[in-house]
Amino acid sequence: MTPADSAIEVRLRVNGLDREIDVDPCRLLVEVLRDDLGLTGAHVGCDSSQCGACVVLLNGLAAKACTVLAAQCNESEVTTIEGLSSGSELHRVQAAFQEHHALQCGFCTPGMIMTTVDLLTTNPSPTEAEITEALHGNLCRCTGYVNIVRAVLSLAAHSSSEGGEG
């Protein structure tokens, strides 16, 4: 049997950059992103895969980085919130969150945005019900989700502009 705690080599492409790191097999992707790669945009809000503050794109699909071992991501492509846009340019989901005041404390926001990016990639014109279902695994305590849903709805392909005033 292989001795426990022996580090294994993992090759990743993170936000477009190739990375080779040695990790303890029990380390979670979110720990490696935050502690080894300095990408602290993905947050840890719970220990039971419920809150979604840690969501990143793993090979293009939303994944809870707290429920994936870094070892499982060998040869994978990871996009974090930091890789979504560069310079002063914003990704359109980020811009919509800004525009619609879809965040308050901002702790859940990176996960919300990454989940939304995944949603719009697979379903460019989600209905309100589809949006709230897609966000089922992303908890927010500040906004009551009202402006988050409004922001995502504004990006739906069928949406002409902002929804009605509350």
């Binding site: 939303a62 994936v68 992303n138």
Partner: peptide, 12 residues
Amino acid sequence: AKQIADPAVRAR
């Protein structure tokens, strides 16, 4: 499938 957890969990 649509009733299981959330999209991120369903993706894995």
